[in-house]
Design a protein around this nucleic acid. Structure first.
Lengths: 343, 343
DNA sequence: CTGAAAGCGCTTACAG
DNA sequence: CTGAAAGCGCTTACAG
């Protein structure tokens, strides 16, 4: 019994081993291994006998042992930069989960909210050797961080960020931000402001690009940008001071928002102040969050389901074969008109 | 080279091995292993030398190999029954993530939305041998499923469900539902209805219990329940037909909602119909979602952060030692008055 | 404080 | 179609 590790006292039996199954089925563990993975080169009756024995003993294989032998961990990691309470985060996680699980992979979740979490993630690279592919969602990486991920030797798929040479899918945030702003300018209001959350500048690629598109449109129209409105993220008070500042202007205005979630919070704040929407203030969101429809929100709808599905399927393909093609895809957005902008 | 597996063609080098580090540092791999985990029985200079060599070679240990040797996978699995887009799901995932990661564990996510996903999960038990502890969140399990989880030999912590003999934390959903309804009855309206989502009956323990509390209160007041309002979950149209049905009654009414998310969607639908809140319809939510504050929502606030923190810390404790105490904790709720109920 | 060696539980090339 | 054996890359009891 030399070498027998005794460091799991009181753990109790962890369940049947492959050897137990082999004995019960009267075959070798090689055959058990093959039969349980339904390899074609096993006699059907043998396979059935093995499955029977495994079920009877409540056997389930050790993923760690299998990983060690195959070099694959059958896990896909997702790295998310926005709070998980955001509609966008929840929606893409839901979609990614479906694809990943149906392909037989588990989902490992990593979240990076602040500079500290960010530092820890890139220093320790927990996804290293821990996932067969990594999906980076809505998260603006520095060139350094991109390089670090490269060295990790795990295939990376980007959702909503452009990284040349890497697989990825997204929309044209800048173009869509510009188009929304052009539409806003066409409404004949004197001010068009852009509202976004503070403190996530380095994280949210998409917000930054949408804002750039806003500036593009103003520039093309020969206008200078109104002071952009930046609010503290999250919390019940979001939008309140923005509403105050917007209403202080005393001119009809259009507000283009970074996201529908922000737009909805702004609408609530405006209404509590008695502002008329869209007469005093017109509002345009960004996302296509279903809740926005209830508020009649005019918004830029992005094809979240398509983006997510594509990203997840690509991650699975790369997890299976790191040499699978690494394509880039850009999907179109649509401006959906509601009642928060005038006809 | 016999036995050398050749099934990873083109994978390229996966990085340095412990042997490489050992050679570079001039020690054995035993020492490398100890030094990298900062074991106390290694000379400080040796430890430093090993860390240096590891950093130079970009070494990171294989979690699979470590797991196989230790019997621990350093992962905690979360099983969630509600859509990840729900505020509650996002909030608890955020909180669980923080605790779990800071304790050195990875987070494995499992979601069970419909009967099919549910069946697959319990048939395949993907968390088996794949996590050191399982956190089951807001998910009503059948006795059979509870037993299945028991046999899995992974410690389980329940968030928002009472399972005797298991660790868990939650609020008194039934009591809180009753208290909210009693408050509603005290407002002197003739009808008090309960609004919840359809299709998740077997999944959401908490919604069911809140509804039971509603019935309790009516019963105690000698009233019979109004037809409960059940709506299709999700989507932009949620709440619209509920609003229609509520307004058809033509009597002032109080609506107690399963969640704040539902209450907010109802408020939007009511306002678009021109109903006065709280004069025509008073609304009470459940959760304490920050967004509700913007709408002045009266609601039952549950201590989500405390519940989540406790559950996650308990999961970590059980992951470290399956014999750690399995306690149950019930936390209090508070009715927060807003402007959607009359003074 | 350090090293040689066994073992964790699988998968698969090889031989039959 | 099946089995014996090597190896995946760690950790740790044991001996020094």
């Amino acid at each position: 019994m030399q070498g027998q590790l005794s460091h799991s006292p009181g753990q109790g039996p962890i369940g049947a081993s492959m050897e137990d199954v082999a004995e019960a089925a009267g075959v070798s563990i090689s055959t058990v291994s093959r039969a349980l993975r339904n390899a074609s080169n096993v006699r059907p009756e043998t396979t059935a006998r093995v499955h029977d024995a495994a079920a009877r003993l409540g056997f389930s294989a050790s993923p760690s042992a299998a990983s060690l032998a195959t070099g694959k961990v059958k896990r896909i990691a997702v790295l998310i930069g926005s709070p998980l309470t955001d509609w966008f985060s929840g929606t893409i996680l839901d979609g990614i989960y479906r694809e990943v699980r149906s392909a037989g992979y588990d989902l490992l979740l990593y979240r990076v909210h602040d500079a500290d979490e960010r530092r820890v993630f890139f220093e320790t690279l927990p996804a290293r050797r821990n996932a067969d592919a990594l999906l980076v969602a809505s998260f603006a990486l520095t060139p350094d961080e991109q390089a670090t991920l490269e060295r990790m030797r795990v295939p990376v798929v980007y959702l909503n960020q452009k990284v040349s040479g890497s697989a990825g899918v997204g929309i044209d945030d800048r173009g869509a931000g510009r188009a929304a702003t052009e539409y806003a300018l066409g409404l004949g209001r004197r001010r068009v402001v852009f509202l976004r959350e503070r403190g996530l500048e380095g994280f949210r690629w998409s917000a930054r690009d949408r804002y750039r598109g806003y500036l593009d449109a103003l520039d093309a129209a020969g206008l200078s940008a109104s002071a952009e409105l930046v609010e503290e993220p999250g919390g019940g008070r979001f939008g309140v001071s923005a509403a105050d500042r917007i209403l202080a202007g005393a001119v009809p205005v259009v507000v283009a928002c970074e996201s529908d979630g922000i737009a909805i919070r702004l609408l609530a704040a405006l209404r509590r102040r008695g502002a008329r929407v869209p007469d005093d203030v017109a509002v345009i969101g960004f996302d296509g969050q279903p809740e926005g429809e209830l508020f009649g929100l005019t918004t830029v709808v992005q094809p979240v389901a398509e983006m997510t599905g594509w990203a997840a399927r690509t991650a699975v393909a790369l997890a299976r074969d790191a040499n699978a093609p690494r394509e880039r895809l850009e999907l179109p957005t649509v401006l959906r008109l509601g009642t928060t902008t005038p006809r």
